[in-house]
């Protein structure tokens, strides 16, 4: 009897459909369970609770002079803080929108016009643009210049020329008081 076991399709009937249904239902439940079990593995590579807790950086800006730029670290990345002069602000605000590959008015990028805060990572492939030190090249638009592939940013951190697709991003920040910014 046992040696006449057959799994061929012609052996079908009432029992066969019940078996198929059971098999499909069980496989489905099993596959769902396995898929759910994968999530903890993936999620463990997301930022951990301590990493997230350190995601806020406080910066004392009282000592930054007019026209001076400083770099601070936020989430392991450089953030450029530019204490802009009236002339620079004027220049940034007067750029016509149609000249911008990624149009954005300067007023939308700086909460207080004299303080520009941007993440100093080129939106092309992640290099750090030059322009923080007075001796650095600042590109054709007086902002920042990325030496890797020649992207030029203006004094509002907006892309003007080169392969980068977007403006330097503005991180979330707030003025805790007149002399302190909290980034993140």
């Amino acid at each position: 009897m046992a040696n006449t076991v057959s799994t061929s399709p012609e052996h079908s009937g009432e029992g066969e459909t019940r078996r198929d249904f059971l098999l499909i239902a069980t496989s489905t439940v099993g596959v769902i369970g396995t898929a759910l079990a994968v999530w903890p593995f993936i999620d463990s590579m997301n930022p951990a609770a301590d990493t997230l807790a350190l995601a806020t950086t406080g910066v004392d800006i009282s000592a930054i002079e007019d026209g001076q730029r400083i770099t601070v670290v936020w989430r392991g990345k450089p953030v450029f803080i530019d204490h802009r002069t009236a002339a620079v602000i004027e220049a940034a605000e007067s750029v016509p929108m149609e000249d911008l590959p990624d149009p954005e008015p300067d007023s939308a990028r700086a909460e207080k016009p004299e303080w520009l805060v941007v993440v100093g990572v080129c939106t092309h492939l992640g290099c750090i643009p030059l322009g923080q030190k007075p001796s650095d090249p600042r590109g054709e638009f007086g902002g920042w210049f990325c030496p890797c592939h020649g992207s030029h940013y203006d004094t509002s951190g907006r892309i003007r020329k080169g392969p980068a697709p977007a403006n330097l991003p503005v991180p979330p920040y707030e003025f805790v008081d007149d002399s302190t910014i909290s980034i993140g």
Partner: peptide, 21 residues
């Protein structure tokens, strides 16, 4: 709870498949 349900189903499938042996 999930595993108990799944294992019960697996047992039913096992019974079914082995029924011809």
């Amino acid at each position: 709870l999930f595993l108990i349900v799944l294992t019960a189903m697996l047992y039913a499938v096992k019974r079914k498949i082995w029924s011809d042996v």
